[in-house]
């Protein structure tokens, strides 16, 4: 307890003391430690401490865990539910809790966590880098990284095409890369590909000469509804999925 060592502990109010006991700057839910350090003693936080200060106009003054709308753990939804639905959020009705409650048992059908990320060869959506032969040659197809155990349960072998389906109803066709880099409950798909739509190459729809050299299934076809109300960012990073042999 740094505050006690500094002799500032008694500047907290009684209620704050109760909540702040055994807590620190980052974990004190009352915000009293932050108030004493900043207001009374003029300490200016930076780095992580700054991010942990109480933000009065956010839904969570101090960040706290909330289960995603599509969660693999129904018990965690009970414990850490998401926000209530918002009637108007910048004039748009936005659903949070109702979607989460409706999809509480979605993990029975879609047991794998799907996360998306980057490859070193490509940039962003990859449209530019996939049009560059020197870079495009290095990764020529979109793939899903899947644990050997999960792949074995589904009869999927390395290098085979698989269908990845998600709660949104979309299916994407990618190649399986069986690797221990991901654990048996997780899959990974890079997001730098586009040009396929649910198993079909859209080459014919590109204006002549405009198609990138390498095309693949875009992972964002498959990601599900979700919205971060603070950053106003859609959920295209992670969701749940099921993998089946194509």
């Amino acid at each position: 307890m740094l505050l006690k060592k500094l002799g500032w502990w008694d500047e907290l109010s009684e209620e704050e003391k109760k909540e702040a006991e055994g807590k620190n700057w980052k974990t004190d839910p009352s915000g009293g430690i932050i108030r004493v350090a900043m207001k009374n003693h003029g300490c200016h936080p930076f780095g992580n401490a700054k991010a942990r200060a109480v933000v009065w106009n956010f839904p969570d003054g101090v960040p706290q865990h909330r289960e995603p709308l599509f969660s693999p753990r129904p018990d965690m939804i009970e414990k850490y539910p998401t926000h209530d639905d918002v009637k108007t959020m910048w004039r748009l009705p936005t659903m949070f809790k109702s979607v989460q409650q409706k999809n509480k048992d979605v993990s029975k059908q879609f047991p794998l966590v799907l996360t998306s990320g980057r490859l070193v060869e490509y940039e962003g959506g990859g449209e530019e880098t996939r049009s560059n032969p020197w870079l495009a040659e290095l990764q020529q197809e979109n793939f899903i990284e899947i644990n050997p155990r999960a792949a074995n349960d589904r009869g999927v072998r390395n290098g085979e095409y698989v269908w990845v389906s998600t709660p949104s109803g979309a299916r994407i066709k990618v190649k399986a890369l069986v690797t221990e880099r991901v654990d048996s409950g997780t899959c990974f798909i890079p997001f730098h590909f586009s040009g396929w739509w649910q198993g079909q190459d859209m080459l014919a729809f590109y204006p002549e000469g405009a198609a990138p050299i390498v095309r693949g299934e875009a992972v964002n076809t498959a990601t599900t509804y979700g919205y971060d109300r603070v950053t106003m960012m859609q959920e295209t990073k992670t969701t749940l999925c099921q993998v089946a042999k194509a």
């Binding site: 693999p72 993990s107 047991p111 794998l112 644990n147 155990r149 999960a150 349960d153 221990e180 654990d183 048996s184 409950g185």
Partner: peptide, 11 residues
């Protein structure tokens, strides 16, 4: 060694 699969991990 490689970490064992976390308990409760589904596949």
């Amino acid at each position: 060694k490689p970490a064992a699969a976390p308990a409760g991990a589904k596949s």
